[in-house]
C-alpha cells in the first residue's frame, strides 16, 4: 500500500459503484495539451494517476474537496459534481 492509500484506509466511504461523480472531459486534452498534469500531484487522495502518458481517474477514495476542479484551470477539463446524497466520504470526526 502506498502512503496515501494507508491514510485513506482509515476513512469510511460509501462508494456509489459505477457512478463516479467526477469525470475528465477529454482524455486527449490531458494527454496532448496539458503539460503539467497538475491533478496528478495536487489531489490529496491521489485519485489521478499517470499511466503511460494517460491520466486515469479513480474516484473511490475521493475526499470531495474540490481541488482538482479549481486547479485544472488551464483547460477546464474536469466535470465536477458531488456524489449522490448519502454516498462518498463519511467523516467520523472531520
Amino acid at each position: 500500500m502506498s502512503k496515501v492509500e494507508e491514510k485513506l484506509f482509515e476513512n469510511r466511504y460509501r462508494v456509489d459503484e459505477g457512478r463516479p461523480h467526477i469525470a475528465i472531459i477529454s482524455a486527449d486534452v490531458c494527454e496532448g495539451k496539458c503539460t503539467a498534469k497538475q491533478c496528478t500531484y495536487c489531489c490529496p487522495a491521489a485519485c489521478y494517476a499517470l499511466e503511460n502518458g494517460k491520466v486515469v481517474l479513480t474516484t473511490d477514495g475521493c475526499l470531495e474537496c474540490g481541488t482538482c476542479r479549481v486547479i485544472c484551470d488551464d483547460h477546464f477539463n474536469i466535470e465536477w459534481s458531488y456524489p449522490r446524497g448519502g454516498f462518498g466520504i463519511l467523516y467520523k470526526f472531520g
Binding site: 491514510k7 485513506l8 482509515e10 476513512n11 490529496p44 487522495a45 475526499l63 474537496c65 474540490g66 481541488t67 479549481v70 467523516y91 467520523k92 470526526f93 472531520g94
Partner: peptide, 9 residues
C-alpha cells in the same frame, strides 16, 4: 493511532 485523514478547501 491515526483514525482519519481529511482534506478540504
Amino acid at each position: 493511532e491515526v483514525k482519519e485523514y481529511a482534506a478540504h478547501l
